[in-house]
Amino acid sequence: MNTLLSRLKTPEGRLAVIAVLVFVLMASLSPERFLSAANLTSMAFQFPEFAILALAVTVTMLTGGIDLSVVGVSNMSAVVAALILANVAGPELAGSGAVMWLLLSMVVAIAIGAAAGLFNGALVAFIGMPPILATLGSGLIFTGIAVAITGGSAVMGFPTAAAWLGNGKVFSVPVPLILFAVLALAVAFIVRRTAFGLKLVMFGANPLAARFAAVDVNRLLLKVYMLSGALAAISGLLVMSRANSAKADYGSSYLLLSILIAVLGGVNPYGGYGKVVGVVLAVLSMQFLSSGLNMLQVSNFARELIWGVLLIFVMLVNSQQVAALFARRRMS
């Protein structure tokens, strides 16, 4: 009991309660529709693309940085993959040839994402730029590259195999969901169980002390932003497959959303603290909420409103000022 109570005091514990409450609330408001198999699967297809972006933002936030270029990276990689699929492979291609081209385009996209991340990492590590500015600028460049190579229009006409990534199922589990689960586990593993992960958290807690403790700071930063870039590229591939096209300005609202999810998930924007499980819980709460609101015929715009309110609410609850206010009340 004690441990349960103490768990509730952590940001993740509170978030778990919120996720369950939202689920129960939505399920009781319209049980037949919210709990329907169709709704549950459609949710599972929807959230992975921005949830993976949130993972990308999370790893950079752990170092006390941020990656504002994730959407740019995601679109740039997707556009290149789309060009390969549409122009080299062509829409008529089927069978093993199509699968091969799909795999190749994925590898290329992820490599481009990682390279873009390497560029960000180099700006932060070697030039010494603040991550907000470095990724703000590079994000514009990546988006710009996507615009320049497509002329601003959508790329489409893929082999049908390409749709599997975003719309397929394995044992009736949506592929995007599997992908997200694998990536979330991988990121959690990296953060908790590898030297790199522990170093990145320590660096986030105190960059100067990390340098004095002979942590290879520059390599660390390069790797973090590469990881973020690669994750963003995977998210871009999902969007491309689901939309059956790629465009320079897809998913522009996802940037705010992914930062929102990371912070909602308890990741400290100043670095040094954050758990993947928190981010997953935040994603689930957001998805339950928005899908439930959808059932209730609430507009997309109201969803945005509720997300914002939720974010501010959670930050207020986690903030020390508010905790101090309540402590003072209780004492007097």
């Binding site: 941020i66 705010l256 929102l260 507009s299 969803r303 409103l305 997300w307 914002g308 974010l311």
Partner: peptide, 17 residues
């Protein structure tokens, strides 16, 4: 940064809804 990201959604969401 985080607060204003949040209020950005709130203001816009409220307006459009």
């Amino acid at each position: 940064l985080i607060v204003t990201l949040g209020t950005l959604s709130v203001f816009r969401g409220f307006l459009l809804t």
